[in-house]
Design a protein around this nucleic acid. Structure first.
Lengths: 160, 160
DNA sequence: CATTTATGTCAGCCATGTTGACTTTTTTCG
DNA sequence: CGAAAAAAGTCAACATGGCTGACATAAATG
């Protein structure tokens, strides 16, 4: 059991070190990456959505989000049905960056999966799901499913 | 692929949230946990060993290690064959705390494995190993093997 | 219209990681 | 033997990113 504890630690450390290289080049940090990632996956999401997904305070988010907006990676627009809201979209610049992150993260996972064999993907997925708190699994899986739907049919994203 | 990226993020977040509860109660942080964990696994390890495993600077380590020593969780002794070195051991107080961490982390993993079925442990192990940089795998596996040996035969730990 | 909600801002603090520089003691090796 | 190297430690400053509390504005709600 201790072995898996340690392997999880080392694996995750390497997993996040890949995007770090990109982040360092642009003067951003991991918090920026996370924000960019989820806005990429959920165009038109609200600030509140991000707070819920990332489980950070609005002050923490505000700092990072402001930099991403100021530097042209994210576009923040008032909602149509509720003008208090700020709906978040990636700019083309932001999308290009997000693609870079996805690519570099996917590479590591793809390589790991290919080493483990053709049927390992599903078991790994199940393991990671099982590592998530029971009460959160539904919302995480729903979040992922919804993002996949949007990727398949972009008209499903929230409009502004 | 994006699914696994996100699942890994959420899984790890939950994984480290368990020890956080303990840490918060004693006014320590994750860096303390990591130090305690590896000293537990490698009694008699040197400061340099910790720096290498954790890949942090001696200044970072020094701060946390000092607190653990000052508060009686870790015992630091000069080496016999090289008096420059500081060999690190857990005190009984430190061991008790380390046991708590191991227990709470093991619980989550054990539950996840039991959900995935009897043969999933080996595949999960392989996946996590495969997620580690190729050039680090040897040393990580050796580190784990060595710790397991010490756990099986404590006389193999470094003496001070 | 009073209250609530969504977002944003100000401020201060904390944990932990980094860099650079310097110090002391001990070990190494020519 | 002594210069150089090594192990550890310390001081200082800074960065990132998370937190708390308080406050403000605009918009929505009942």
């Amino acid at each position: 059991m201790l072995e898996l504890i340690e392997l999880f630690f080392f694996a995750y450390r390497n997993f996040v070190s890949d995007p770090d290289e990109i982040l360092q080049g642009i003067g951003f940090g991991r918090a920026h990456h996370r924000v960019l990632h989820f806005v990429n996956r959920h165009p038109g999401m609200r600030v509140t959505d991000l707070l819920e997904i990332l489980r950070i305070t609005k002050q923490s988010l505000g700092r990072v989000l402001r930099e991403l907006v100021d530097q042209g990676f994210i576009d923040s627009r008032a909602g149509k049905s509720d003008r208090r809201q700020r709906l978040l979209y990636l700019t083309p610049k932001g999308e290009a960056l997000a693609r870079q992150f996805v690519a570099i993260q996917s590479r590591r996972i793809a390589r790991a999966l290919s080493e483990c064999g053709p049927d390992s993907r599903e078991l790994c997925r199940r393991f990671l799901v099982a590592m998530i708190d029971t009460e959160d699994r539904g919302s995480v899986e729903k979040l992922i499913a919804r993002a996949d739907q949007i990727a398949a049919d972009p008209s499903r994203a929230r409009k502004a």
